Simulated scan of single mutants.
Amino acid sequence: MIGPSDATPHLPRRLPAVGQLGWIRGALGGVLGIALAGAVTWMLLGRHGDALPFLVAPLGASAVLVFCVPASPLAQPWAVLGGNLLSSVLGLVIGHLFGNPWLAASVAVGAAIAAMSLLRCLHPPGGACALLCALGATGPSPWDATMLLPIIANVLVLCGFGWVYNNSTGHPWPHVAPATPQPLSIREDVEAVLEDWDEVLDVDAEDLEAFVQAVLRRRRSG
């Protein structure tokens, strides 16, 4: 018989306040990254400053990934750049092609997911960029390619600062799996289990292998 505690789903591990991956580190990175992206974008827009936003909402979600889970495949530089920018372009193009906001938004998000998956730059905020641009392109004052300017500036600045911040706080970015001794090759077993599960996990096979190797070494030494 399953009791209430057994039926409760496992919650994500709570981040400590300090340390290399503490929530203070992530929060500070978000504050500085968004502030810098907004300031630089506002200065770059120049004469377009009154007509275009200096920040776009999906950037907030990108900041969470970049500064809180920098080892995630969804938070790598190519994912942030390719996912956001590719999806924004698709949103604008599909919005102008379809004209209808309901249809354009639906197709744009689906197309963004497909494109990001095929190009290995899957990034959840990219779906938000596709939706935002599709709705903007079908609005009362249809957006044109000029709307890409703040998005491009936002994403480039966030990635640039993310690279500096993560690397200076002990988290190589782009992420590289830890180098570990390989007395026992378990890579094939890891990949076989992933194939059996038939699920997409937010972690690379290299990191999973390094994690299992570390657990095995800890057991042997303990």
Rank of each mutant, 00 (worst) to 15 (best):
G139R: 09
R187T: 15
H96Q: 05
L135S: 05
N100S: 09
P178S: 12
G82T: 14
S141Q: 12
W173D: 11
Q182M: 07
S62T: 14
F67L: 07
V176H: 15
G139P: 00
R187K: 14
L148M: 15
L119K: 01
A153L: 11
L74E: 10
S106R: 03
V66R: 04
T180S: 14
G95S: 08
L86F: 14
E199D: 02
G95I: 13
S72W: 08
L103V: 14
A137I: 13
S88K: 04
L122V: 12
L86W: 03
P125E: 06
L97M: 11
A75G: 13
A177M: 04
V193N: 01
E191L: 10
G83K: 06
G99F: 02
P125Q: 07
L148W: 05
W173E: 13
T169H: 13
S72R: 12
L65I: 09
A104F: 06
D198V: 09
P174Y: 01
A145S: 11
L149V: 05
G127C: 05
V64G: 02
T146V: 11
P142Y: 01
C159I: 15
S185Y: 02
I186Q: 08
I186Y: 00
A134P: 03
N100E: 13
E191T: 12
H175Y: 15
L149G: 00
H96V: 09
G95W: 08
L118G: 02
S62H: 08
E195D: 08
F161W: 11
R120C: 03
L65A: 13
P172L: 12
G126Y: 03
I152V: 15
D144I: 03
L90K: 07
C129S: 14
M116I: 00
V157W: 04
H123K: 04
A128S: 13
T180I: 10
T138N: 01
A112R: 06
T169P: 06
V80I: 15
V164C: 06
L86I: 15
A179E: 15
A71Q: 14
A192V: 00
N84A: 15
C121T: 15
H171A: 07
A145N: 00
C121K: 09
I151V: 13
W163K: 02
V157G: 08
T146H: 06
L92S: 05
S185N: 14
P140S: 15
L92I: 12
P124Q: 10
I152W: 04
D144E: 02
C121D: 05
V190G: 04
G91M: 06
L85G: 07
L119S: 13
V193Y: 02
I113W: 01
A145I: 12
N167I: 02
D144T: 14
V107S: 01
G110T: 07
S185C: 10
M147C: 05
N84Y: 10
I152S: 11
A79R: 02
R120A: 09
C68T: 15
V109Q: 02
S62Y: 08
G136N: 05
S117Q: 12
L135T: 11
L97P: 01
H96A: 08
L92K: 06
W197Q: 10
A114P: 00
C121E: 07
L90R: 08
S87Q: 06
A137V: 12
L149Q: 06
G82K: 12
C68Y: 03
V176P: 01
L65P: 00
